[in-house]
């Protein structure tokens, strides 16, 4: 949990494999990397068994690049496709039992605060819609009501992808899936509405067809969770297998879904805006100067 854990032990550097050397010497630890530098530095997540062309994979890749301090970040996940990649990254990952992730993260973030005081250690939960809105629903909601200071990211593929296509609370009404052959009978759950109601300090919806936007929402959510309160990002990360999307059309689908039901949205409390502006220099949240009085009409 510091830069030291990615350094070579004295005398051992020449014996380390190339992968490890590249990570220490050209990875993102201790420096700022951005989405626009992708392809030029060693990333902390690579080579995992998620399906070819999966949008969730792309989102997780972008998330790993966007963490403000990867060397001080712990991810928490649970059963579902995403953990197959998240658990392979060169930062610590805690595997909660299916649905437990927000309870595990609550204990972890409190423990880290006791141990490290004011030094920020970021806890980020990333789990599927089933793990978060169905099985882990109560723990997700309660962590928000308790104002636990960590980031919750839903990888919303609108299906149980990992177990072959059951409907989840986040599946859209009417959707037919392999294991929901009659179509879903209920509306998609409004988790964003619930996050706001429960008092999350930052709430955003995002689609990975805009990598810089993903970077921006993740940075803000992680920073706000350090001091202000719980933060929630809901990302549309299609499952091309269960929704039969040809892999070369995954970004086209993302664009269509963004225009249809997944428009970008961002909600911040006034306290969160003030914190981002004063602590981290986010200019867009600086108080607006009083508007000049309108010129008299000619």
């Amino acid at each position: 949990m510091s830069l030291d854990y990615v350094k070579f032990s004295p005398g051992f550097d020449k014996f380390m494999p190339k992968e490890y050397r590249d990570m220490v010497e050209h990875g993102p630890f201790g420096k700022k990397v951005t989405v626009s530098q992708m392809g030029s530095f060693k990333e902390i997540l690579e080579e995992h068994p998620m399906c070819a062309g999966c949008a969730m994979t792309l989102f997780i890749r972008l998330a790993m690049i966007s963490f403000p301090n990867p060397e001080d970040t712990i991810t928490v996940g649970t059963a579902g496709c995403g953990r197959l990649a998240i658990s392979q990254a060169a930062i610590p990952f805690v595997y909660g039992n299916y649905g437990d992730q927000s309870a595990v993260a609550s204990g972890l973030s409190r423990g880290l605060r006791l141990r490290f005081g004011d030094k920020p250690k970021d806890v980020v939960v990333m789990a599927g819609d089933g793990g978060m809105a169905d099985i882990g629903f109560s723990m997700t909601l309660h962590s928000w009501f308790r104002k636990e200071r960590f980031t919750t990211i839903m990888l919303d593929n609108e299906v149980y992808g990992n177990t072959g296509g059951q409907e989840s609370g986040m599946t859209n009404k009417g959707q037919v899936l392999k294991m929901a052959p009659l179509g879903k009978k209920f509306e998609k759950m409004d988790m964003v509405g619930m996050a706001k109601l429960a008092g999350c300090a930052y709430v955003a919806t995002v689609v990975p067809n805009n990598p810089r936007r993903v970077e921006s929402v993740i940075k803000k959510a992680v920073l706000v969770a350090r001091e202000i309160g719980p933060t929630y990002i809901q990302a549309y990360t299609s499952c091309n297998i269960e929704y039969s999307i040809p892999t070369d059309k995954v970004m086209e689908d993302a664009k269509n879904v963004e225009n249809d039901r997944y428009q970008f949205s961002e909600h911040l409390t006034e306290e969160a805006k003030h914190y981002l502006a004063t602590r981290y220099g986010f200019k867009e949240y600086l108080p607006k100067p009083a508007t000049a009085t309108a010129l008299p009409q000619a």
Binding site: V35, S36, M38, G39, S40, K42, E43, L45, E46, E47, M50, A52, G53, C54, A55, T57, L58, R61, L62, M64, N209, P211, M251
Partner: peptide, 16 residues
């Protein structure tokens, strides 16, 4: 333009 690597789901696969 460096666009493709920002969309490749696989990390460190399209490089510059």
């Amino acid at each position: 333009c460096k666009l493709c690597t920002q969309y490749c789901p696989e990390a460190n696969t399209i490089l510059y």
